[in-house]
């Protein structure tokens, strides 16, 4: 009965779609690591240090005593802002920003744990990641909200509108 289907909300597709969510998570993770790698690479060139994966996952590398450490921290903060735009482009829903932001950082935590072979316990790692998560989430929500609050133009849809 097409009629019955029609009644169950044609305005927006709200059904649970595991494929979509999984691909969104994968896309977020890929985009974030790609941009983080680029940012860290640029920072490494600027500070003249060697390019190494340690800067991404090794939490002992985070320190503010020298330029090298500070550059890495800067790269992470920049990446959080890029993450907000990624949320906006890939997820696009205000209510889901917190979820996806936490998911990314949770997976990053697991990646770091695996890379180092031990659970990160340093204060600097946790502070940086919580701060980055917050920036990403709040900025992402701000961007998505702006899009969601836009007026829906009704003039050029046609005679029949199903609201």
């Amino acid at each position: 009965m097409s009629k019955i289907k029609k009644f169950s909300g044609s305005f927006r597709y709200t059904q649970w779609d595991p494929c979509l969510i999984i691909f969104q998570i994968v896309a977020m993770q890929s985009v974030m690591y790609l941009s983080l790698s680029l940012l860290v690479a640029i920072m490494q060139d600027l500070t003249g240090s060697t390019r190494t994966l340690d800067h991404l996952f090794e939490y002992h590398e985070l320190h503010i005593v020298d330029n090298e450490g500070r550059a890495v921290i800067l790269a992470f903060v920049f990446n959080a802002v890029i993450g907000a735009f990624a949320l906006w482009m890939i997820v696009g829903r205000t209510k889901l920003c917190l979820d996806f932001s936490c998911t990314y950082h949770g997976l990053h935590l697991i990646a770091c744990w695996y890379y180092n072979g031990s659970f990160p316990t340093t204060f600097s790692w946790w502070t940086l990641n919580i701060a980055c998560g917050a920036i990403m989430c709040v900025a992402g929500e701000f961007l998505c909200l702006r899009t969601e609050l836009q007026a829906i133009p009704l003039s050029n849809i046609g005679a029949k509108v199903d609201l």
Partner: peptide, 12 residues
């Protein structure tokens, strides 16, 4: 992740 698990629970 939460949305995924919550949706899965609802689906069950």
């Amino acid at each position: 992740m939460y949305t995924l698990l919550h949706g899965f629970y609802k689906y069950i």
